[in-house]
Amino acid sequence: MNKRYWWILITYTLMQFSAVPGVLLLRELDIPLERIPGIWSMFSFTTGLLIIVLLLLPEIRNRHDVEGRSSRGEAVRWSIIGVFFVFAAQYAAALIEMFLLGIEPGSENTETIVEFAKAFPAFILVISVIGPILEEIVFRLVVFGALYKRFNFWISGILSSLIFAAVHMDFTHLLVYTAMGLVFAYLYVKTKRILVPIIAHVAINLFVSIVNVLLADQIEDWMEQLEQLEQQTSLIIGGLL
């Protein structure tokens, strides 16, 4: 692994650990406590992404020289296919966790992130765009890429996905993160374009953000209306019988 990739890993690590001094700093500025995680994440993730993109400039300039790189049309097709692959992998992994391992659905990590986004709506940009870009660069381009030079796809994909899950501090759902990581790694290997798993990852996170943050209240109202309709229907049917 070249030196720039090591600097990318160092930058990402420092970005993650900067939350501790960052929170302390913002608390001194009398910013509401519930908004602090979103505000600092917006700053640290954006800064980290800018630094990492600068470190990747040689790869960006020479991206057309990559052997076996898919065409733009193929990249678009695999980006779309990849979204459905990730959803399918998540669903399959969740079913295995629930029925074979007895793990209840739902993620505390996701719930915490949703709360941050509700307190500071701009944090949605971190969840749905900046975060996925960073994670694909770090865990697929750098970590998976380094492992794939030494091991086969499955070993490289599983190891990089486990690290991916560990960073999210969601060890209960290791299987879900591993399944997602394997799909993202496959998309990267298949197309030789890191942009393809980035697009798929952004699409997945954007969908989750819209459902859990922007439409959460509206969906709750729809569910209440549906329950009321079911109750009214039951009463009508009961009266007819």
Rank of each mutant, 00 (worst) to 15 (best):
L33G: 01
W154D: 03
T13H: 00
I194N: 07
L215P: 01
W154F: 14
I163Y: 00
M180F: 12
G238P: 00
D221S: 13
T191Y: 09
V126G: 08
E34H: 04
Y5N: 15
N212I: 00
G238K: 11
I8G: 11
V183T: 12
Q90V: 12
E97P: 07
E104V: 11
Q16W: 09
A75V: 06
I237R: 06
H201C: 02
A185N: 13
I198R: 02
A93N: 11
G106V: 02
P37T: 02
R140V: 14
A122F: 15
L235G: 05
V83Q: 03
K149V: 08
L215A: 14
Q90G: 12
R69C: 10
I158W: 03
P105A: 05
F99L: 14
G73V: 03
L240H: 02
G68Y: 09
S161D: 06
E34L: 07
H168V: 04
V142G: 10
R4V: 00
S234R: 11
V66I: 15
M98E: 14
A200N: 00
S70V: 10
E136W: 06
S160W: 02
L187V: 09
L182V: 08
S44R: 04
G239D: 04
I36S: 02
A119S: 15
V176H: 06
Q228K: 09
E227H: 06
R27A: 00
L54Y: 14
F84A: 14
L9P: 10
P105M: 05
L147N: 10
R140Q: 12
D30Q: 05
R72N: 13
I236S: 01
N2M: 06
S70K: 12
V114R: 11
I219S: 07
L215Y: 13
L159V: 15
W7A: 11
L240E: 03
L100D: 12
F151A: 12
G239C: 00
L49W: 13
P197N: 10
E67W: 01
E97G: 05
K149Y: 01
L100C: 15
R150L: 11
I36V: 10
L56D: 13
Y148R: 15
L134G: 06
E115Q: 15
I155W: 13
N212K: 03
R69V: 14
G68H: 08
T110M: 07
E108K: 11
K192N: 12
L174H: 04
G82V: 08
E34D: 13
A179N: 09
L187H: 10
S79N: 06
F123M: 15
E67I: 12
A89M: 13
R4D: 13
L134A: 04
G239F: 10
V20I: 15
G48C: 07
L57Q: 12
Y148K: 14
W222H: 08
I137V: 14
T178F: 05
I96R: 12
R27C: 01
E230K: 08
K118S: 07
V196Y: 02
